[in-house]
């Protein structure tokens, strides 16, 4: 129990550092630290598939974000006091926290999930699909539609990046 608290508190500290640092490269690296904390937490929560995927995705997203920030010279940010904007954001966040505090009572206690569908998958995965890894059996057999949609989204994002980045634009 204690180790989960420690790791999530470290993730929160990393998130605050990533938010408040002036230098963009440093804040991107702090985001990487938050992602590594998430990887550790996945390992402790018995999700090794997710830990592997999160680790490699974290490295790739770090490379992409460094690509965006390296070689960028920004003028120092002039802070104009727009107190209304700030207050609006604080009100929004506080409202979210209040609603989530009220929702906490309806959640199942930590460590005893409601496995309505999950128990069925656990019981029948080996007999129906022949795969020992239940997560793999769920994403590729029981819930193949999800993965098809995911493939579509990935394809769309590749097309979007290629269309945004291409050199020659059409002249009007």
């Amino acid at each position: 129990m204690l180790e989960h608290h420690v790791i999530i508190l470290l993730m929160i500290a990393g998130a605050i550092v990533a938010m408040e640092l002036e230098d963009m490269l440093s804040s991107v690296i702090a985001l990487g630290a938050v992602g590594i904390g998430l990887t550790l937490e996945f390992l402790l929560l018995r999700a090794p598939d997710l830990a592997i995927t999160q680790l490699v995705v974290e490295i790739l997203s770090l490379i992409i974000l460094i690509r965006a920030t390296v070689g960028v010279k920004l003028p120092p940010e002039k802070v104009k006091g727009r107190i209304g904007y700030f207050l609006f954001a604080v009100v929004f966040v506080v409202a979210f926290l209040v609603f989530s505090y009220r929702a906490l009572g309806a959640l199942p206690a930590f460590g005893s999930p409601i496995m309505k569908m999950g128990s069925l998958y656990v019981k029948e995965a080996l007999a129906k699909t022949g795969a020992a890894n239940i997560v793999s059996a769920v994403i590729l057999d029981f819930r193949g539609y999800d993965t098809l949609g995911e493939a579509t989204i990935l394809f769309t994002s590749v097309i979007g990046v290629l269309a945004i980045v291409r050199k020659v634009g059409r002249k009007p």
Partner: peptide, 20 residues
């Protein structure tokens, strides 16, 4: 992927990282 942790997603990202 069907026996041990991993699968197509993690393997694909690792391959992309090797080319990168």
């Amino acid at each position: 992927g069907h026996l041990t942790p991993g699968g197509g997603f993690a393997g694909g990202v690792i391959i992309a990282l090797s080319f990168i």
